[in-house]
Each structure stands twice: as structure tokens, then as C-alpha cells.
Computed example of a mutant assay.
Amino acid sequence: MKIQDVQFQLSRIPLPGGTWGDQIHTVTHIEIITADITADDGTKGVGFTHTSGVGGRTILAMLEELRPQLIGRSAHPRSVWHDAWHYLRDSGPGGVTTLALAAIDIALWDLLGNHHKLPLADLLGRVRDRVHLYGSGINLHLSADEVADQVENWKNSGYGAAKVKVGKPDVEEDVERLTKIRERVGQFPLAVDANQGWTQPQAIIAANRFEHLNLLWLEEPIRTDDVEGHRRLRERSRIPLGLGENLYTLQQFNQYFITDTCDFVQTDVGRVGGITPYMAVADTARAFNLPMTPHFIMELSAHVLCAVPNVSWAEMTEGGTLTELGVIEPQPIVDGWFVPRDVPGHGLNFDRDFLTKHEVTR
């Protein structure tokens, strides 16, 4: 089976809530770049990648430059990924390179599932039929009572844990908000996300002030390219560390694993380059007895986790799932659990009219 045709589309989707904000981001749109691949036997697969509103045209240009390298070659995703990565890697081993490759890789796994008439989880090697979710929100702008309401709702809806944003100008305000949540939901598992917004001293102070709150993890306290900074923070804090959404290569993840500075592995299936490298990260994390806790793209990430033994939860970003963005048909969530559809491939049905309505043209 060989690749016969590849087509791409870039769309800018407005956030249903208007604007997202945290310590370092202001986001108004999510960009979705789709890849439609057709094999010479007529089998089709659809893949996609995403940005937080910036860089979509660059990714699209890179994919279009890659297209001639894809036509006529074997449609197996692993061989395509590694050859395509070597072709593009002079533009950087990760980042735009891996974001572009994700669209191709996801499409080829979908195509392979459709060819063999197998759901993606079975194609990868299913180990479970459903995945527990944790509630997550872009909620730094909410009042203490409002964010406590949000977490309480996730708890009552059956989610296994919750994550909230931290990074107020005064760390005591963060402590007040988290204390309010603890009073409301008791010892329900609670994580916090600082979005790389602190300096090293700020992270140490915050971690020490949070210690009595029994947090599940502290996510991205400082810049994710600072492995040594995370090691030094580890020496000064007992709160587990979560990171990975802004790591792009297996080698970057491995640096955190071997320095014992990552406890929850939050790989983003788009940013790391698709399902092929995602599974490599999952296998490596398993060797270190670390759980996969993926970032974003819940509808695909949770499906892939059905084939991963080392799992904690998948992230349900309130207001930011592909379903809530209007990009795909709704996926089944039952009492806080994601249950993948029993259909060939990844089972994501894209709303083509909606994507075309928001298409970015030259």
C-alpha cells in the first residue's frame, strides 16, 4: 500500500469562550492543520496538528514542501515518520518540525486502521477500553469561588482529578484560591499549572507555600528548556513535577527522566510529532515507572492511552476540546471516563464545512 495523494488545510478556530490567558499566554484562536492522505488502494486517513494561534502558515508551508517526498512511498507511519523527520530536521529537531509531522503521522495511523478495519487502540495493542479524565481549565482570571465551583463540578461529574492555574502577582493569592478549593472538595486530587511563568526563586517560594495543600503535581513551574533548574527545584520541594506539553523530542523527555525531574509525563501528541513518537515516549516513561498524563487533544490522546500500560489520566480542557471547538463530532464521555468509539481508525469525524468556514487562505 503506497501513498497516492496528500492534501492539507489550515483553519483558525475562535475560542468559544473568547480568550484564554495564563502567566505567559493570551490566546484567541486555535489553529488546526488537517492532512488527508489517500493510498493507492483507495483507503483514506485524516490527521491533524494544532497551534495556540501562532505558526500555522509556517507549518502548512513545511507540509507542502514535504508532499513530494511522500507520494509513492509505503504508507506505513513509522517508516514515513523517520524519513520525513530526517528530511526536515535541519529546521530543528522539534517544534515546527514535529508539529508538521504530527499531521502526517496521525493520518497514516488512521489510514492503517481503516485499511485493517481496526480501531486505533486495537491497531496499537489495546490494554484497556476506557481512560479516566481529569478536569482542567484556563481559570487564572476566575475568582476563588468561581474556580472552586469549577473544580467541584468536575469532582461531581466523575473526573479523577482537577488542575487549576496559578501565578497571581502575589503568591498568597494563589494560596488563598487553592485553600478555598481544598475547603470545597476535600482531598480530591488537585494539581496546579504555572505555565513556565516563574523565575527559579519564585518557583521555590511558591512550592514551599503550597506544600501543605497536598498537591498532585506542580506543572511547568519554570521554562521547560531548563532541566538543571528543575533539578534544583526538586532538591528544595517535595511536590511532584509535571511537564511535557512543551517538550518536542524523545531526547528532551529522556533528559528529564534520567535527572529524575519529571513525575507526570504530559506529552502533547501534536507537539511531539504524532502517535509514532508519542508511543516511544510512553515506552521510555514506562521504563522509569512514570505515568503518561497527556496534554490537550483529549479525543485522540485518550484513545491512544487505551494502548499504553502506564497511565494516570487524560486531560479534559474545559472549553478547549476538539468537540467544544466545533472541529469534530462529539466523542463519548461517561461519568468522567473517555470511551473511544468502536470504529476503524481514530474515529474522529471532522466537520469539514466548519473547517472550511474558518480556512486561512493565502
Rank of each mutant, 00 (worst) to 15 (best):
H50R: 05
C306D: 09
A84P: 04
S237H: 01
S52M: 14
V96Y: 13
G319I: 13
T259C: 03
Y87K: 07
K168E: 10
I30A: 03
L142R: 09
P309A: 10
H116T: 13
E183Y: 01
Q252L: 12
S157M: 13
L140G: 13
D225E: 14
P201K: 03
A191W: 00
I3D: 03
E299H: 02
P169H: 11
T224F: 00
D351E: 14
G56Y: 08
G270N: 14
E173N: 03
V185E: 02
G167R: 09
R67L: 04
R223L: 11
V54T: 15
G320H: 07
I24K: 12
R89Y: 00
D83K: 12
P240W: 08
L348A: 08
V339Y: 07
W109Q: 06
L123Q: 14
S79A: 13
H29D: 12
P119Q: 09
I13Y: 06
N289Y: 15
T323L: 05
H50W: 12
V80A: 05
G125S: 08
V308M: 05
A307I: 13
D129K: 03
T51R: 10
G94Y: 06
D36L: 08
G319M: 06
L140F: 07
P201V: 04
A121Y: 02
T317E: 09
N254S: 11
G56L: 08
Q202F: 00
A206I: 00
D268V: 07
T179K: 14
E220A: 04
V171M: 11
I275L: 10
N310Y: 10
L112T: 14
C262H: 01
G21V: 13
A61P: 04
Q69D: 14
D5M: 00
G56E: 02
T49G: 00
G347M: 14
L213Y: 11
G21R: 14
T98N: 06
T224P: 00
A121V: 08
Q252S: 11
F338R: 01
N208F: 03
A84M: 08
P14D: 10
D5A: 08
F48G: 04
V272H: 00
K2Y: 01
E220D: 12
R78Q: 15
D225I: 13
A100N: 08
D41W: 02
L123K: 11
N156R: 15
S79M: 09
W198T: 01
G94Q: 04
H346A: 04
R209I: 02
G244N: 06
V6T: 04
V166D: 05
L216M: 11
F188L: 01
